[in-house]
């Protein structure tokens, strides 16, 4: 049971990441691979504040969001000059730079030694070191993030986003300042990722740069492609699938000397098969 709760908490964190990335990638058509960087900023902010100063969890979340908004504003501004594949590569580049900062800014982040001993949130005296309580808390936030995303997607703001995805120039003709919209959704997505990061840091109690690499951004992207682009429920489902899959594979018996690599092999094959047989993702309708 404890194990399942643990997986559930991880699933919730990644569902938040997936939903927030989907706003940017699936609905607006911006192929962002920077998400792990924002996830990281949120994590490190909470980690540093909770271990170095007396700041509580929730204020640290707020600060994490603020820092991420600033970072995503700057990065988004630069990225907005790019299209399609170049956007992806540029965002990838920013992720690499962020990772280098996490790794090398020793005085702040302790680099590869990581930050241990991150405490749990305090709220109305509830004991959050009980993982079940923590799960409820983080699920609640997932709910908030999900509802906010749904609201955005169904609003007129969301319609503009989808139009940008379909044909940016056309909607510019109508007088819409697409830069504003692209920047806004990028920042919103980043802020949500920061929330996920804060929860991750507090739950796992130890963070180091290895959690925010380029491959992490790719992983989040895979979650939403698998779940279905432009489908929020799909992102949640995708997160569930990709968190559970390696864990379920732990139970599939292979000779122990090669077990782990065999599981990686199966994992890779499943990705290929899924793309071959269901390229629009589990719940998706939109194929770019």
């Amino acid at each position: 049971m404890e194990y399942l709760i643990h997986l559930a908490i991880l699933f919730t964190v990644y569902a938040m990441l997936g939903v927030s990335l989907n706003l940017v990638v699936g609905y607006t058509g911006l192929l962002s691979l920077t998400h792990a960087a924002f996830y990281g900023i949120g994590s490190y902010t909470t980690a540093i504040l909770l271990t170095q100063s007396g700041v509580d969890f929730f204020p640290s979340v707020v600060l994490g969001i603020i820092l991420t908004l600033i970072a995503s504003f700057l990065i988004g501004l630069v990225l907005s000059k790019f299209r399609d594949d170049y956007y992806a590569l540029g965002s990838f580049g920013f992720n690499a730079i962020a990772f280098a900062v996490f790794l090398n800014w020793q005085n702040l982040t302790r680099g590869p030694l990581g930050i241990p001993g991150i405490s749990k949130p305090e709220l109305f005296g509830i004991d959050f070191s009980n993982n079940f309580n923590f799960l409820m808390l983080v699920l609640a936030f997932l709910g908030l993030v999900y509802l906010a995303s749904r609201f955005i997607v169904n609003s007129s703001f969301g319609r503009v986003l989808k139009s940008i995805r379909e044909d940016e120039e056309a909607i510019q003709v109508f007088g819409y300042n697409t830069l504003y919209f692209k920047l806004a959704v990028f920042m919103i997505g980043a802020g949500m990722a920061a929330i996920a990061g804060s929860f991750f840091a507090s739950y796992i109690t130890f963070i180091d740069p290895s959690g925010f690499t380029l491959m992490e951004s790719v992983f989040i992207l895979v979650i939403i492609i698998l779940g279905g682009l432009a489908n929020l429920r799909g992102s949640v489902l995708g997160a569930l699938f990709l968190i559970l899959l390696p864990e379920i594979l732990r139970f599939v018996g292979f000779p122990s000397s090669v077990a782990a690599q065999m599981r990686q092999l199966v994992y890779g094959l499943i990705l290929i098969l899924l793309m071959l047989y269901r390229p629009q993702g589990l719940l998706g309708e939109y194929k770019i």
Binding site: V218, L221, G268, I270, L271, I272, P279
Partner: peptide, 13 residues
């Protein structure tokens, strides 16, 4: 993007 994910699968495998 689908090709990207497929290539990731191939890379991992």
């Amino acid at each position: 993007m689908v090709l990207l994910v497929a290539s990731l699968g191939a890379f991992t495998a």
